[in-house]
Design a protein around this nucleic acid. Structure first.
Lengths: 341, 341
DNA sequence: CTGAAAGCGCTAACAG
DNA sequence: CTGTTAGCGCTTTCAG
């Protein structure tokens, strides 16, 4: 291993100056050609483009951004990548961002507010054009940084609370209420809940808690209550849902309807019932949240609430890169009756 | 709306210079304090940090990178975010990257080589410390850019072919072979295949094609062949798998084993069988790829091949940010017998 | 239509 | 332990 690293960090990339020399014009002319800015003689443009090709020139946006004080980066802060929901938000955003010439820089908090604060700071260090974050709850310092950044900020996935600039989301409290109302209207009366905690190293899922509170509140208003709940001490997953429902039913066999913190959990619960020969929804009703594709293609489509994740990412991206006034966009949710409740 | 935009783009962020003035020291001293570089008197450090806090100073990495010619950005190019597999790779990478002080910039190609080329170019424009891409096949120009970038490049998820610098993956051809061997050893003889195309706007999944070729080749070597195949003209998904298997069986009811292009597809196929009362694996065997969690928690765990996605992201990130010599890391795959074949 | 000068905000390299 | 001097590679003026 005489040459362990193949000259990395050595190669100085070709610069605008070199392109200019090769083309026999000034740097600014090359710059203008590359950015389609200002009037350029077709012949000049051709010569420049040829030099660019010949040298394999790739512009240095770091320098460009510093000079023009405007980057094409958009920071995206997500709580997790383990749940398909957030990649979907990202996917929704990726299209519009690419189309508008922006690049996503992503950061994952694992639901930890302190981590979020640190990540927001390091994102801001790149002077992004805008920032998209998940949820409305942040540390005071994080919120201060977002307010003072001088850029557009979009808060996604939740509309239950006040925001900083742009909010694109839906009411999680309402999602819980819808679930409760549906189960009540179907005549279920002995309710259980299966939720997820964060496990050892992961913070609270505040939006799941808002759903739970909407659910419990609505039951209470109707004169009912949750008889038993099981909070699995792990991030949400199909496995956690299966395990959690098994535990709950072992303890409280008389339940007739169980609300689960999301569709991953609900699908796990559904799998448990299939395995155990528990008839759904006759013997037990299951209700989830999100209307994930996988749950809608199951033999019995999950009863759930549809949340438009792609749309949230898409609208968030467009607003954060545009100059519309601060606003809250409630994308709305929809009851999916499904076949499990 | 007299003030449509709340002064965005106006606010000039505070600079190192201002911090230096406030603290009564020179700029370089502030710089050193912030980077923990060189010896600093404790008292000086304290004054500087106070000024930083007082002014809410957030360093400008754009300027820092330009001055020091070294960014903490790592580009990550993924074909898709619709399949949980790639968010998992990203998740695997996110941990080590964060720990080592790097930030992921992501780009999504939708399996389109031309898009990949363009995205690699714009990532390179940020002079990232390293680049992680998916697969070994790139346009000639993309490959040239990767070779000449002067940074570490990791190619992920595939080891069937030659690479540029670092390869972290497994053999998709082998994955197909393992599937075929397993089905043969179980005595199945009338084989079907359900694959995914890209739909209208999405390119080919080359790694799925490699699996298919390994599968077909192995059957052929054993004197067998696939009787019928159905390629769904859509990206892979549970729904596409369910639909595809339904189509295939409608046309070829006599099959006794079906290989599906991945676990999303296989789970869809499994759901179809559950719905139709097709007994698995007695009446029909199903075999997938990836060993997704959701498939392993199903009433009958899918028969599949485990691919260590998190590990691929993790190792890729570490190598791309380190200075080990160019190398190929085959992370290996594992037959999961499951209960569907 | 093109160019010259100045500087974006920071850090490397050398002094002291 | 701290400061001075030069840029990093590009874009923004302002002149031609």
């Amino acid at each position: 291993m005489d040459q362990p690293t193949t000259g990395r960090g050595m190669t100085r990339r070709t610069t605008l100056t070199e392109v200019a020399q090769q083309a026999g014009v000034s740097e600014i002319t090359v710059s203008r050609v590359l950015r389609n800015s200002g009037p350029i003689a077709p012949a000049t443009r051709e010569r420049v483009m040829e030099a660019v090709r010949a040298l394999g020139y790739v512009p240095n946006r770091v320098a460009g951004t510093l000079a023009s004080s405007g980057s094409n980066l958009v920071g995206i802060v997500l709580p997790s990548l383990a749940n398909i929901v957030f990649p979907e938000v990202l996917r929704g955003a990726a299209g519009p961002l690419a189309k508008m010439g922006y690049q996503p820089v992503i950061a994952v908090t694992e639901y930890d507010p302190a981590r979020e604060e640190a990540l927001i700071e390091s994102l801001l260090a790149w002077r992004p054009a805008g920032l998209m974050v998940t949820g409305l709850e942040h540390t005071p310092r994080a919120e201060a940084m977002l307010r003072n950044a001088g850029i557009r900020v979009a808060e996604l996935m939740d509309s239950d609370g006040a925001g900083i600039d742009i909010i694109v989301g839906f009411s999680n409290v309402d999602a819980g209420r819808i679930a409760a109302r549906h189960l009540l209207s179907r005549g279920y009366r002995r309710f259980g809940y299966v939720g997820h905690g964060g496990g050892a190293t992961i913070g609270k899922d505040l939006r799941a808690e808002k759903r739970w509170s909407g659910f419990a509140m609505t039951l209470k208003e109707a004169g009912y209550a949750v008889s038993d709940k099981e909070i699995v001490d792990a991030p949400s997953s199909v496995a956690a849902g299966r395990y959690g429902l098994a535990e709950l039913l072992a303890r409280s066999p008389g339940l007739d309807a169980v609300y689960l913190s999301n569709d991953d959990m609900a699908l796990g619960g559904y799998f448990h019932c299939l395995s155990q020969g528990i008839s759904i929804p006759g013997q037990l009703a299951l209700f989830g949240h999100n209307a994930l594709d996988v749950g809608q293609v199951a033999p019995q489509p999950l009863s759930t609430v549809r949340t438009p994740r792609l749309k949230i990412g898409e609208i968030g991206a467009k607003l954060v890169c545009g100059d519309a006034p601060p606003q809250t966009v409630d994308v709305g949710i929809e009851l999916i009756e499904g076949a499990t409740a």
